[in-house]
Structures are given as structure tokens and as C-alpha cells.
Design a protein around this nucleic acid. Sequence first.
DNA 1: ATATTTCTTGCACGCGAGTGCAAAACACTC
DNA 2: GAGTGTTTTGCACTCGCGTGCAAGAAATAT
Lengths: 340, 340
Amino acid sequence: MQEKPQPPVGGSVTADDVAELAGVSRWTVNRAYKKDAPISAKSRKKVMEAAEKLGYVPDLLASSLASDRSNLVALLIDDFANPHKLVMMERLTRILRKNGWDTLLVNTISEEDASAALLNASQRRVDAAVLIGTKFNHTELETALGARRVKKLILFARNTAYKNTISICCDDSDAMTMIYDYVVKRGYRKPLFLAGPQSPSAHVLRKDTFLKLWTDAWGETPHWISVPAYDPHLAFIETRDYLKQLAPSDRPDVIVCENDSLAMGAMDVVRYELGLRVPEDIAITGFDDVPQAAGPHYQLTTYRQPLTDMANALVAVLKGGEVAEDLTRFDGHLMVRTSA
Amino acid sequence: MQEKPQPPVGGSVTADDVAELAGVSRWTVNRAYKKDAPISAKSRKKVMEAAEKLGYVPDLLASSLASDRSNLVALLIDDFANPHKLVMMERLTRILRKNGWDTLLVNTISEEDASAALLNASQRRVDAAVLIGTKFNHTELETALGARRVKKLILFARNTAYKNTISICCDDSDAMTMIYDYVVKRGYRKPLFLAGPQSPSAHVLRKDTFLKLWTDAWGETPHWISVPAYDPHLAFIETRDYLKQLAPSDRPDVIVCENDSLAMGAMDVVRYELGLRVPEDIAITGFDDVPQAAGPHYQLTTYRQPLTDMANALVAVLKGGEVAEDLTRFDGHLMVRTSA
DNA sequence: ATATTTCTTGCACGCGAGTGCAAAACACTC
DNA sequence: GAGTGTTTTGCACTCGCGTGCAAGAAATAT
């Protein structure tokens, strides 16, 4: 029923139409839209007025095709259970948009679809693929680069040794060292490390750093368990199963988590399954500083990454210059709250 | 440094290349990729082999340009504080992708950027714009339709009386009636309604329905307050300010919230600011059934919308057929948990 | 074997704009 | 006002593929 939009004329207005009305050539019309193009103020004005009158907007599809620059970025996510992703998406889309890029949201949850989705994105000639997922594997990356149209592959908030890839993240080992120092300073001595999926990808660095620091300083390696996804609910299950089979005297006095998503699940276990207090009985630390972490319930001591700076760095990379600084060493803050 | 991908030849493989290698014309190559196109099995096979060998993938940009069908949908969001959005995004992207559509994520948080973002999306000739935001205003919609390239405007999980717009949502008034019935059945008699922004858009229907039902049945209109965004933290603040100035005897016995995002904020107030118990002192209901609502902490009684069905309906609309059924009357379930 | 019908294939033209260069228009100097 | 330099403008060609139609090949009928 609502089948007839197109209040103006049928079809869309092209640069030719504008050119005719403005009494110039089509190329001049296009120039009018290009920042610092060789065009006189007068004819730009004529063009803009004509464009306004006709409701003309340049067609990005045609433009991308002709120029081989799509101003499109694919954002690949496989982890919609982690609220931090929402924060990242908001920040990234906003900052990318401000700089002229649009964002293609690609859901790579199911393994099979992942490479298909990536391929599909590449068919749109995205200027870059940004991964903020967790489980990406190397063959997937190969696929991405294999499809020649993905010009840049960027891991956001993740580090990796994989070549041909640009990583924008903070220094996990510095960050984890801060957490370690804090935990030790507060007097905790029986830590449990709660890790995410043990894929060959990024986060393991956090675990490894913490375990190594602890082992070097105290002579014994802390226990640790792994959760197959950064999902609070899965973290809840794994942590519960682990803690419940432990004698009370063997319980940790602090659970250091790879991120907030896991920390929230762990805290729920401590309180609702074990009936213990946080931090008096068991303290908890996270990573990411999701919005909920600041709420009265969790009050999570965690680490906040400088997302805005990182997003701006992403823009810089997209703009193409060789970026001088090291993009894997951003510094964040330790947010101290009451959970530890 | 990682500046030379393109393992194969420089530039990308086009249908012409494939055609040459396969010994057919370019058009036959394209036909090979088109479901039920007039082409012999033999030549399709030849083409596919050649394509495989060269690593050819059809260019969607060129295709969209030529066919005026982008298979792109713009997803507009202005509310990244509500965890339910993450669920929606996951569901929508997955189902859209399965049906051949890609998703452009457009952040419309800042009012100024909103119409610019929308315009920008329209320049990519999206097949439709799907709004899952909250504060969209009518002028924005006008802008969207004004840019002739937005062919369809769809409100997802929101109802509206606005013409030229397709709404896919569940029947808010049925849903709210279920909640009302439940609340009454459980014996609550002093409700407070916690509403979101009072824009001329959708959700007010939930508030209006509840207030009307209550007023009709009990002769007096419940108190209600409004939060300027569906943000748990803002809900916390508003609810706290309201409840704290109330004499204990005037406190509600149940807080009916427009959605879970608000409900979580409200519950935190009840517990951590008032030091009361949920549901014994004050019960709480939500709407949406976000993942956290099922966690041990909130255990929120809420209403779950049939997102998958709704997403499939969206696909049906995109596929263009006049959809017979009423798209504004999906039915969800009341998820009864311990919060009320 | 010839006439028909049906399936395949090739092609001209178009989608809407970008690029680099050459011609045209304007400015300025002496 | 001719000569030189600079700014503007126009144009041919290209990007990779879709559409509709007409010619060619293959299959069926007579």
C-alpha cells in the first residue's frame, strides 16, 4: 500500500540533470562536490543551487566503482554475548562516519558463514575488514586476504603475530601487569585466572602474562580455567562447576578474569551459587570496563582501554599513511572499584 | 610494511577474464552465477572451473549499479546502551545474510549526524532502512523518504502511525495486557510505571495501555515516571530520585518497566539504594528478555518478542511481495522469573 | 531430410561517476 | 595589446556488470 514514494520525479537525479540545469558540464558538477578541486566559486555555487533544487545527491555506488574506493569498512563480529561489543560498535561507527566511512556489520558467529560473509563483504570492495571478534582463525584471515579486494585486515583490540595484519590494541602485558600489581598489593595470594577460548588468537597473552608474573614472583603457577566463549552465562557455568568441586579451603581469594564478560559470570557464581561476598570472600577483576561494570551491582575493578584513541588510529590507518607509532601499545586505565 | 597483499596478479579478476579462459562470452559467465538462468549445464561448469582457477568473484558494486538492487540494508540505531540491541543485531544480521542481504550499521545517536548518516546510507542505494532505534523523529523519516533512494522504511520492533512506513513488531497492547494481568494476579496493587523517552514514537503505547487498563479496573491512574533514554544508568538515576523522595508508605509494590534496560536500573535502585528486596518489598517487570534478565542477579519477569519470526518477516518484506498478514501483531511469551 | 520449436549464446547499450589531459577562459605583466 | 602564466572547464575512456533482444545451435516434429 505504501508503495509509491518518489514524491519528485520518477527515478533518481544524476549529475547530468544538475549539469543541464546549472548550465555546466557533468564534470563540473562532480567537481563541485569535491573538496579542493579546481573549480571557480561561482560555478560551484551555480551547481549547488541546481543540485538543491533537484534534490541531487551523488551516487556512492557509481563513485566507488569508478574510483575503487568504497569508503566502506566491514566490521566482523562473532561474539554478540559480550556487552563490550556494543560499546565498540558505537565508538567505531561514530568515528568512522565522522571521517567518511560507513560500516558493514558482518556476523561471523557460525563458522561456515564466516568465510562466506567475509567473501561477500569483499565483493563490496570494502576498504578494510576490521575484526573485533574473538575466534577468528588463520584460514579465515587467509581467505580474506586471498579475496584480493580486502585491502587491509585490521584486528581491533586484539593483538596477533599473524603477518599481513594490522593490530590496534593496548599493551596487554602492561595492562595485565597493572592488574597483577594491584592484586598483589591488595594482599591476595590465591588467584584463579578465568580465561576465554584458548584459540591461537589474541587474549591468551593476558593469561600468559599473569601466570608468568605470578609464577616468577611466588614460585607457583596459579590455577586457571577456560571458558569456550566470552559469554557471561558460559562463564557462570564453567566457574560454578570448577568452584563447586573445590573444598572451601582451596578456594581462590581472587578471580582474575580475561574480561568483564567473564568477570560478571564469575561474580554471579560467587554470590549466588556459593553464597559468598565480593570482595571479602573472593575478589574479582575484569577487563574492558563495560557499562555494567560501573553499576552498583558489579562494581568491577577493571581495565579501560582508550577506545576513542584506538578508533582514531584506525581512521589513520584507513587514510593510508604509514602510521609511525606502534599501534599495539595503547595505554588504558585501571578502574578501581569495590570488587577487588 | 604489510603493504603487498595481492598474491595473484595485480588488480582484480573480472568476468571478462573468466570468459576468455572458459571460451565463452562475458554474459555467459554472468549467467553461470545466476540461479535459473538460461544456460547449459556444460557451459556453466566450464565457467565455474575457470572462475575457480582465476579466483573470480562477481563484483557486487558493479552489479548493484547496473541492476539498481544493492542487497544492502541500513540498520539505524541510536541506542547503544540497551543490551537488547545486541541481540537484535545478531539476529537480524544473521537472518539477512542468510537471505542475501548485507547490513550497513548506522549510528544515529547524535541528532545532527542522524540525517546525514541516513542520507549517506541512501547514497549507497540501500534496499531498505530498518530502524531499531527509539528517538527517530518524523522529520528524519521524511528525509529518508525524501532521498528517493531509500525504497523502504521499516520500523523493527516498534509500531507507529506514520504513513509510508512498514512496522514489524508485536502487539504492544496485547503484551502489556499480559503483564498487567500477571501483575494483578500476583496481588500487586500499587504500581509505578517506568517509561522511556516520551517522544511521539512507539513505546508510549506500552505505557498508555498499562495506565488505561489499570485506571479502568481500579479507578485510579498509577504514577509513572519517564527516563530520557533506555539506559540502565539513567533509569537508575531517575528511579532513585523519584523513590527517595517518597515516604516508605507511599512506595510502589511493583515497578512495571517499559523494557529490561530500565528494569535493570530500577532493580539496582531498589536493592542498592533503598536496601529493599525484590520481589518481596518491590517487584519488577521488564520487556524484551535481554540475556542478563535470565541471569541469577536480575531474574527478571519479562516479555520475549519472537525476534526470529520478526526478522523473517523483514526478509519477506524485502523480497517485495505484498505481505498479507498484519506485521504489527506478533505474539511473544511472558517469561516469568522471580522478580515479580 | 526439412520445417519447427526450444534452448543457448552473443551483443549493444546503459548504470553514474572518476581520471588525466588538453583546450578554453581568465589574469597579469611590460 | 601581445605574451606568459594560471585557473577552469570539457571530454574520451574506464569501472564491472545487468537487461532485453536477436541470432545461432540443438532438439523435436513431420
